[in-house]
Computed example of a mutant assay.
Amino acid sequence: MKAYIYDNVEGDQRLPHHDPSLPELSTDQLSAYGLLYQHIPIDTDQNWEQAIDLLAQERSYKNRDIIDISKESMGDQYEAKLKIFFHEHLHEDEEIRYILKGAGYFDIREPSSDQWIRISVTSGDLLVLPAGIYHRFTLDEGNYIRAMRLFKDEPKWTPYNRSTDTDANPHRVAYLESLRPTVSAQ
């Protein structure tokens, strides 16, 4: 995992958009925004599955599935889906992703400055985004990712695109309130 300020330079969303002159962000800095990050290496003796099972038990995740995002797996829907994933949105539930293969980027909005923070994820990275955080997702130039999604209840993925309504969404408000001690709210 690598996290840094998104450079906002026009161009393909699948490019790194990284200004190497700026420092990278640490996992501690990401945790200040409510993110949880772990690296659980994919190995051949299935220890990663035990680690995921333990995490699921600790955080009350009851369901999971595996999603492949690629031109081959999604066919004609690929480009449209990638645009949907990259549109700024929030969820009313945590978004939990464990990367099994491939690579991509989660971008989160820094609440006080509104700038994007890009988080590069690859095989073995587990990322938990809190409910109410504005974010988006895209693949990298490899155009492929296989990820396990974990859910507290029935699997669902309902994005709420950023608007004045989502700014007032109770999950958004609760998220910003949870940051007050460490980050000034918008």
Results as ranks from 00 to 15, higher is better:
3 A>C: 04
3 A>L: 08
4 Y>I: 06
7 D>G: 06
11 G>S: 11
15 L>W: 11
15 L>V: 14
18 H>F: 05
18 H>Q: 12
20 P>A: 09
21 S>K: 03
22 L>A: 12
23 P>Q: 10
26 S>W: 10
26 S>V: 10
27 T>P: 03
29 Q>S: 03
30 L>S: 13
32 A>D: 15
34 G>H: 02
35 L>K: 12
36 L>H: 15
37 Y>N: 07
37 Y>T: 15
37 Y>F: 15
38 Q>N: 12
38 Q>V: 07
39 H>E: 15
41 P>W: 10
42 I>Y: 07
46 Q>I: 10
49 E>I: 13
52 I>H: 02
53 D>W: 05
54 L>Y: 12
55 L>E: 15
57 Q>S: 12
59 R>E: 14
60 S>V: 11
69 I>F: 05
69 I>N: 05
71 K>C: 03
72 E>V: 01
74 M>H: 09
75 G>A: 11
75 G>I: 10
76 D>T: 09
79 E>Y: 10
82 L>C: 12
82 L>S: 04
83 K>V: 14
85 F>E: 07
86 F>C: 03
87 H>I: 06
87 H>N: 12
94 E>A: 10
96 I>D: 03
97 R>P: 00
98 Y>L: 07
98 Y>M: 05
108 I>R: 10
109 R>E: 15
114 D>V: 07
115 Q>N: 14
116 W>Y: 13
117 I>K: 10
121 V>W: 09
125 D>I: 04
125 D>C: 01
126 L>H: 11
126 L>N: 02
129 L>Y: 09
133 I>A: 14
134 Y>Q: 04
135 H>V: 02
136 R>W: 03
136 R>D: 01
136 R>F: 06
138 T>P: 01
139 L>K: 05
139 L>S: 00
145 I>Q: 01
145 I>L: 07
148 M>E: 15
149 R>Y: 12
150 L>V: 01
150 L>G: 09
151 F>W: 11
151 F>R: 11
151 F>L: 08
151 F>H: 14
153 D>M: 05
154 E>W: 09
157 W>N: 08
161 N>Q: 13
162 R>V: 07
164 T>G: 01
169 N>T: 08
169 N>K: 07
171 H>P: 00
172 R>A: 00
172 R>W: 09
173 V>K: 12
175 Y>M: 06
176 L>C: 09
177 E>W: 00
179 L>W: 03
179 L>S: 04
180 R>P: 01
186 Q>E: 05
